[in-house]
Design a protein around this nucleic acid. Sequence first.
DNA 1: AACTACGCCAACCGCAACCGA
DNA 2: TTCGGTTGCGGTTGGCGTAGT
Length: 294
Amino acid sequence: MRKPSSASSRPAQAAPPNPSAKTTPCCSKVGIKRGPWTPEEDELLSKYIQKEGEGRWRTLPKRAGLLRCGKSCRLRWMNYLRPSVKRGHIAPDEEDLILRLHRLLGNRWSLIAGRIPGRTDNEIKNYWNTHLSKKLISQGIDPRTHKPLKPNTHPSTSAAPCSHHHLHDRNNSSSNPSATTKPNPDDKPPITEQDPNPYCHSLDPYDEALALGDLPAIPMSNTPSNPNEEEDEDINYCADDVFSSFINSLINDDAFSAQQLQQQAPPPPPCSGINGVAWDEDPNSMPADADAVH
DNA sequence: AACTACGCCAACCGCAACCGA
DNA sequence: TTCGGTTGCGGTTGGCGTAGT
């Protein structure tokens, strides 16, 4: 877990040494700045990367004249400064795609982001935690499994607003066993007796196919490149066409199978005027090709 | 106007995967 | 094969803005 709050805060100042930590965080060196980036720092980083390119993050700050750790530089570039990063509201079709992909992939934010041009894993993760998970809960849907919540877990009872600051949001993830268990693209998510279907495995042909060796490994692209539509031609945001096609087919197949499931399953708890989510949508209503949003 | 509670999101941390020597 | 350095990922934190009282 994180260091004590005194050291884990984000002051815009050099962090003190951390003698108690077993491993020294890269940003704990004296003289390394932390906290929000200034426009000057952004400019330094942008200009340097435009000139020298990405990579070698460890030594980049020194070469660029930044008093930041490499991790911080990389994060800033990936999530904010890259020209391909699209900022602003998540469009409805993007939201729909996030829902579908999350249902298929779970909290594999980088994979999800890789399918949504211009969006970063951090942005999608934040959007999920602040919007979509709550939206699903309000619909009586477990945001983790994408299945109807049990009656005694319906928001009208258990999901009542929590008065503690942040506790409500964070409980969504911290109380989520699968959220603390890092999903490994190479491994099937853990299946327990209590939670035999943490990622809707019965509807997760990806993991099944992966386990059967029918799939190429997930391309762990170092740069979850999210080009703008205009940049699709020169930036391959999913390096593996096979994988890309497969995900697309999963999205479509999933919508279809989910619809079937919906027809068989008891009706979900009444929701307050919110449109249906992934599995009760007409597959024909989604883009014919998930890449349509790209 | 002052205060409180809460939502949003940029940024940090730890860990694991990756990769080259 | 092992080991150490680097990079990427997902979980988490906390500052800031804003709505509500």
